[in-house]
């Protein structure tokens, strides 16, 4: 396998960024940091953890212990605010000062691990003024809806504070949750629940000049992010991204891409509790749904782009993925998604 691709036990998450923010948040309420750190491979004596890294499983463990100590239901929301202060390192500067939406979403995709250690993002271009980011779990399906909350607060507040004047709408696959009020208060953007995918739609309002120029300090910030993260990437997001940008890839093609055998790839994906087929189906399903709902693309075009031989085959597959026919899905979500 390519030596830049690695499994979940590899420690890629900088402990001096998000984990420190979690501890800061707990410390503000005089909660016991030692208890929170149990199972995270970090020890308080190593604080501020410069140079230490942890893996997503350990990070998830840290969040769960922290939430138990916190007691109120707003932990994951408050964490989003706290991360914005100094929990994502130089990435904040980069995202503040990049003015073009395309560059912005590219950065979010590249450094998703710094924004949310357990969630990866896929980018989809709706048109020149609109982008869609899809969120999935690094660790295996399904997406952890609590950590998703933190990411929504973080992204929405980042855009709001940097005065970008972009319209932000979030789509969540979960049904309207009991803490829906927290979404109203903390997330700076409209949230739609019971959606067919998890993601965010970002639109530039008219007079945005798409300024691709990047000043030197922004470039420095981006380089610092690259240095922090290194070259290695986790297997699951890597494969997902491959399949997302090229739906034709089979198991054999994908294995070849990452320089390994199909059997090994299968085994390694299984350690994320994901099968290749399920992952490939998910990418196709999300692509089909997003094309249908956001772009209003015709079924024939979608089925051709997903390499189906005929559209009745595609309809059957669509029904299998989503439980609905394309037209019933379209009418079910008519109020929420207006094709641009």
């Amino acid at each position: 396998m390519l030596n830049t691709i690695t499994l979940l036990d590899e420690k890629l998450i900088p402990a001096w960024q998000q984990p420190v923010s979690v501890l800061d948040l707990l410390a503000a309420r005089q909660l016991n940091l030692e208890t929170a750190l149990l199972g995270s491979s970090l020890f308080l004596s190593d604080a501020p953890f410069t140079g230490h890294k942890i893996n997503p499983i350990q990070f998830q463990q840290l969040l769960q212990s922290a939430q138990k100590l916190w007691r109120d239901q707003d932990f994951y929301f408050q964490l989003g605010h706290r991360l914005l202060a100094n929990g994502i390192g130089p990435l904040k500067d980069a995202l503040y000062h990049v003015h073009s939406l395309a560059q912005w979403t590219d950065l979010v995709g590249e450094f998703a691990l710094l924004l949310s250690p357990t969630i990866y993002c896929r980018d989809y271009t709706i048109n020149a003024h609109e982008r869609f980011l899809l969120f999935s779990s690094n660790i295996g399906l399904p997406l952890n809806s609590l950590q998703h909350r933190t990411l929504l607060v973080l992204i929405s507040q980042l855009i709001k504070r940097s005065e970008k004047n972009w319209r932000v709408e979030f789509y969540l696959s979960e049904n309207t949750p009991s803490d829906v009020d927290q979404f109203y208060v903390h997330v700076a953007g409209k949230c739609y629940f019971s959606s067919p995918f998890n993601g965010v739609r970002i639109r530039q309002t008219q007079n945005n000049n798409d300024d691709h120029h990047m000043d030197i300090s922004t470039q420095v910030a981006i380089n610092q992010c690259r240095d922090t993260l290194g070259e290695k990437r986790y297997l699951l997001p890597y494969v997902a991204e491959l399949l997302w940008s090229n739906h034709q890839l089979t198991l054999n093609d994908t294995a070849e891409h990452i320089d390994t055998s199909p059997a090994t790839l299968k085994r390694k994906l299984a350690s994320h509790r994901v099968s290749f087929q399920a992952l490939s189906d998910q990418m196709k399903a999300e692509r089909a749904v997003i094309e249908l709902l956001l772009k209003g693309t015709s079924l024939e075009q979608i089925s051709t782009s997903l390499c189906f031989h005929d559209s009745s085959n595609f309809r059957r597959a669509f029904k299998r993925w989503t439980g609905m026919t394309p037209s019933s899905l379209k009418s079910a979500y008519r109020g929420i998604f207006e094709p641009s």
Binding site: D24, L25, A28, R29, Q78, H81, R82, A85, Q157
Partner: peptide, 13 residues
């Protein structure tokens, strides 16, 4: 959020 950021989370609380 400015209070939280400028002072601290515990001041905000």
């Amino acid at each position: 959020d400015k209070i939280n950021q400028h002072y601290s989370f515990s001041t905000g609380d």
